Amino acid sequence: MSSGNSVGTGLRERKKAATRQALHEAAVRLAIEHGLDRVTVEAIADAAEVSRRTFSNYFASKEEALLYGDHARMCLLLEAVRARPADEAPWPVLTAAAVEVFQVLGTRDPKWIAQVRLVRRHPALAAQQVTTYTSMEDGLTAELSARGVTGPVRARLMAAAFMTSLRVAVQAYPDRTEGAPFIDVIREALATTGEGFRER
């Protein structure tokens, strides 16, 4: 009986994940094609072939739906940090986790670049992106404290500086020379910020 329940639960979770991804992809596609201001929640729901109510079960706004990819990467990032060796120094842990998660974006995906430029043009999207990135600070702070970062203030500052560096790298990337790997921008941003968190 329990095995059947597990299968059912797994299927429901996969269907939810598929619906969430479909809404996200519809939001990105419509915003790129028509501009964010012309896109409505109803249009996103229609494009994903779900109801307006279903949209509301997954996202609070069209901005949140559009930036769901960022949220998913942030969750993967926290998992990657937790999976690093326990004896690794804190800032190298963060850097290695970022490289692991973000290296898949190294091919200048036109859709992702267009999404980044949308964020730069629209304050509502920029605010949502800040919210998405800062939502990971509590988890990172706890992980850094567990790894020996002394004091809650330093651990939180490190987490916040790390997340800000990633966001700045994302925003700066479209202006880089065509073909430049995104991961190089990530490494540059983290190396610069990491100077302030060298172990003493």
Rank of each mutant, 00 (worst) to 15 (best):
R176C: 14
F197C: 08
L166N: 01
T177K: 11
V119E: 13
L77W: 10
D87M: 11
R38A: 14
A26V: 05
E188Q: 14
G194R: 08
A172R: 15
S6V: 11
K62H: 03
R176I: 07
R120S: 14
T95M: 14
W112V: 15
I183A: 08
E178N: 13
S61Q: 05
T54L: 06
T54G: 02
A96V: 06
L94N: 09
A169H: 02
D46T: 01
Y133P: 01
A18T: 06
V149S: 01
A142H: 03
F102Q: 11
E79D: 15
G4P: 00
Y58E: 05
Q128A: 06
R167H: 12
Y173G: 05
Q115C: 13
R200F: 06
W112Y: 14
R52C: 02
D138P: 00
D46N: 06
E64T: 04
R154H: 06
R187W: 01
T193H: 01
A172T: 12
R198Y: 10
V99S: 05
E33W: 04
R121C: 09
F102G: 06
S56G: 14
A159M: 01
Y58K: 03
T19L: 12
R108Y: 07
I32V: 13
M1N: 10
E195H: 10
V50S: 00
I186G: 06
V170N: 10
A161E: 06
C75I: 08
I186L: 09
A43N: 01
L94V: 05
D37C: 03
Y173S: 07
V101K: 07
A86G: 13
H34V: 03
R120F: 07
A18Q: 10
T19H: 05
D109N: 15
V81L: 08
T192N: 06
F182C: 02
W112H: 15
Q115S: 13
E88L: 15
T9S: 15
A191G: 09
D37G: 04
T54Y: 04
A126S: 11
G139N: 07
L144T: 07
L11M: 11
T177D: 10
E33L: 14
V101F: 09
Y68S: 11
K16S: 14
T192V: 14
A89T: 09
E195V: 13
T40F: 04
